[in-house]
Simulated assay, not measured.
Amino acid sequence: MLEGVRTGWVLSSLSPQHAIAQAARQHVHCAAGQRWRWDGVDFEILHPQPGSYASHALKANARSCTLKLTAGGKSILLAGDIEAEQEAQLLEHDASRLPADVLIAPHHGSGTSSTYAFLQAVKPQLALFLVGYRNRYRHPKQEVVERYRQLGIACLRTDQSGAITLEFGDSITTSAYRRDTARYWR
C-alpha cells in the first residue's frame, strides 16, 4: 500500500525492524504530546508515553497509538488495542484530554479493556466496536457491551452493521451499510 499511495511519513508504535516501518519513507514513533492540524482537523496523540519504547517487556498492544481527532467542536477517540493498564495511565497522565463524542472501543471490546473509570472519563455518546463476524476472539465480550449500555452509551458493531459512516456537523449522524442498504434476504 505504501508503494501505491504517496505517503510522506508513517506514525506508528511498530519497531523500526517491522516491514511497514522499513517500507515507509519516514517512520516516526507515536508518543503522547504529539499534535498537528491538517485541513481544519486537530490531531493529538495521547498514548504511549515516549519512554515506553525503552521497555522491551511491553506487549505491542500496550504501546498502541491512541489518537484523538477534533473538528468543529466534535471529537473521536481512537484507542487502538490498549488495555486496562494503559487506560489507567491515560487517566493518570491527563484525564481532561479524554472526553470525546465517539469512542472506537479499545481492543475491539475485549475483556481486558473498557474499564468503567475510562468510559466515565471519555463520556462518549457513541461507541464503535470494530470486529469481524464470528471472530475467533469473540469480541466484543458481552460484559463489556453491557458496561457501555449501563453508562448510556449507544453502540454499533461492524459485524452486525457492516461499514459505518459518521458525519460530524452540529450533531453526529451515522449510517450503517447493512441497515441503509437492506436486502430482502437480510
Rank of each mutant, 00 (worst) to 15 (best):
G4F: 09
R6G: 04
R6T: 05
T7W: 00
G8S: 05
S13M: 14
L14Y: 11
S15A: 08
Q17T: 05
I20E: 12
Q22N: 09
H29Y: 15
H29F: 13
W38A: 12
I45D: 04
L46Y: 11
P50Q: 04
G51D: 11
S52R: 04
S55R: 13
K59Q: 15
K59L: 15
T66D: 02
T66M: 05
L67D: 03
L69T: 07
L69P: 11
G73Y: 00
G73P: 03
L77W: 09
G80V: 07
I82L: 12
E83L: 10
A84W: 14
E85Q: 13
E92M: 05
A95G: 13
S96K: 09
R97Y: 04
D101F: 03
D101I: 02
V102L: 11
P106W: 10
G111F: 01
A117T: 14
F118D: 00
Q120P: 09
K123A: 13
K123S: 15
P124M: 05
Q125M: 00
L126Y: 02
G132T: 08
R134W: 05
R136F: 03
R136P: 02
K141D: 12
K141E: 12
Q142A: 11
V145Y: 08
E146A: 08
E146M: 03
L151S: 03
I153Q: 06
A154R: 03
R157S: 04
D159S: 15
G162I: 06
L166N: 00
E167H: 15
D170P: 14
S171F: 03
S171Y: 05
T174N: 02
S175H: 14
A176T: 14
R183F: 10
